[in-house]
Design a protein around this nucleic acid. Structure first.
Lengths: 209, 209
DNA sequence: CCGCGCATCAGCCGATCGGCTGATGGGGCC
DNA sequence: GGCCCCATCAGCCGATCGGCTGATGCGCGG
C-alpha cells in the first residue's frame, strides 16, 4: 500500500506563543505537516491562495486588521477548509463562523488528540465541533434562539454607546418612534426589559464587533 | 567562572496549546528551565510551594476554579515571583494583577525575545511591563483615573444585571436615594451619563468579575 | 396575489431615571 | 480635634423610557 500524503496545514493566530504551541503539538503527528504560519487575517488569506493547504487553523480574534470571521469567509470561498480554533463559544461567535463557511469549530481548551482528529476530519471536509459548541448548536436547533436583524444590531450598537433614543434616531436617520419599536423587539429577543440589560447581554454574548 | 544555574520556571495556563507553545519557545533558551506546568490556579498554587520555582508565568483567565489574580495573590505571598502573561491590557486587569503582587505584566502578543528578557528580569525580582501596559500605567500615574469604590462596584454589578434602582436598592439593603447617589458618582467616574453607558464601560474595561 | 417578515412612523401614559441641593454619621489620618 | 472620604438618606422636577395600540410600505416566496 502507498503511504498516505500528510495533511497540509496553515496556522493563523496573532499570538506567537499559540503558533509555537500548535507547531510543537502538530510536530508529533507524522501525518500532519504545517506548511505555513500567518499572524494576521490578511496574511492568512494571501498564504491560503499561495500554499493551498488542506486545512487552515483559524483564530477568531486577530487583533489588527480583518477578524477571523472575515478571513474565514474569504478563504472558505476559495474552497480551502477552515477549522476555527478559538477561546470562546458564544452563540454569536459560533453562528458567525459557521455562516462564514467554517468546516469545524474547536476550543483552545480542547485536548490535543481532539485537535488532531478534527484536523484529519476537516482535511476531508467533514465537520467537527467541540462538545460545548455542539451542545450550543443543538440547543439552538431545538429552541431557535431569537436572532437579531441587521437593523436591530445597528440600534444595539448605538445603545451600547450609551446613547439616548433621540441620539440613536439621529445617528441612524430614523424617528424616535422607530427606535423605540426596535428597542422593544430587542428586549423581547434578548429576554430583558431595560437598556442596561440589553447592553449587558450584548457584551456578554459578544453580539457586537 | 562557574556556570550560572538556569532560571526555574512554572507555567500556568488553562490551554494546552499555550503551555506547549511556551515549552517550545523556552526550550530554545539554555538558561531557562521549565520545571512544571499547571492547568488551573489551584494546581499552580500547589506546585509553586512544592517546586519553589524562580518565576511563575501566570495567565489571568483560567476557566474553572480560582482566577489568575487570586492565584497570583496566594503565590506572591509565598515569595515566589509571578510574571503575568495574558491577552488583555485593560486598566482593571493591570491594576488587579499589580495589587495582587505580580512582578511583571506581559502580553501574549509580545515578541518571544521580550518574554525571555522579562523572565530573566523577574527571576531577580525586577519588574517588566509590556509597552502598552507600561503606557497605561504611566497614563494612570499622570491622570489618576477615578477608581470605583467597593460599594460602587456592588451597584455597578447589579446595574449590569439590568436591574432598576428599586431592585438594586432591595438587593443591597439600601434606599433608592442611596442607589441614585452612587449611580451619579459612577457616571462621573466612568465619564458617562446613562446606565447603558455605564454597563458598556464596565464590560469594556472588565471592571466586573 | 396573498401572506409574512422587516422597517418605518404616531400618539398616549405611567413609571423610571438623572440632576440638583442638602444633610447625617462613621472611620481613618495628621 | 479637625478634616476628608465614604456611605447613607431625603425631596423635587423635568426628561426620558417602556409598553401599548395601530398603521403604512416594501420585498420575497408560495
Amino acid at each position: 500500500m502507498t503511504a498516505t500524503p500528510p495533511v497540509r496545514i496553515l496556522l493563523c493566530d496573532d499570538h506567537v506563543v499559540v503558533r509555537a504551541g500548535l507547531l510543537a503539538l502538530l510536530g508529533s503527528e507524522p501525518d500532519i505537516e504545517v506548511v505555513g504560519e500567518a499572524g494576521s487575517g490578511e496574511e492568512a488569506v494571501a498564504l491560503a491562495t499561495k500554499l493551498t493547504p488542506d486545512v487552515i487553523l483559524m483564530d477568531l480574534q486577530l487583533g489588527e486588521g480583518i477578524d477571523g470571521v472575515e478571513a474565514t469567509r474569504r478563504i472558505a470561498a476559495t474552497g480551502v477548509h477552515v477549522l476555527v480554533l478559538t477561546t470562546y463559544d458564544t452563540d454569536a461567535d459560533i453562528t458567525r463562523a459557521i455562516e462564514a463557511g467554517a468546516t469545524g469549530y474547536l476550543l483552545k481548551a480542547e485536548r490535543p488528540e481532539e485537535l488532531f482528529a478534527a484536523i484529519r476530519s476537516a482535511a476531508q471536509g467533514r465537520t467537527t465541533l467541540s462538545p460545548p459548541v455542539a451542545s450550543r448548536v443543538m440547543a439552538r436547533m431545538r429552541k431557535p434562539l431569537p436572532t437579531l436583524t441587521d437593523r436591530e444590531l445597528d440600534i444595539l450598537a448605538q445603545l451600547s454607546q450609551g446613547l439616548g433614543n433621540r441620539d440613536i434616531a439621529r445617528a441612524l436617520f430614523i424617528s424616535e418612534a422607530t427606535v423605540k419599536t426596535h428597542l422593544g423587539r430587542i428586549y423581547d429577543k434578548l429576554g430583558v426589559d431595560t437598556r442596561a440589560g440589553a447592553v449587558a447581554v450584548a457584551k456578554e454574548q459578544r453580539l457586537l464587533p
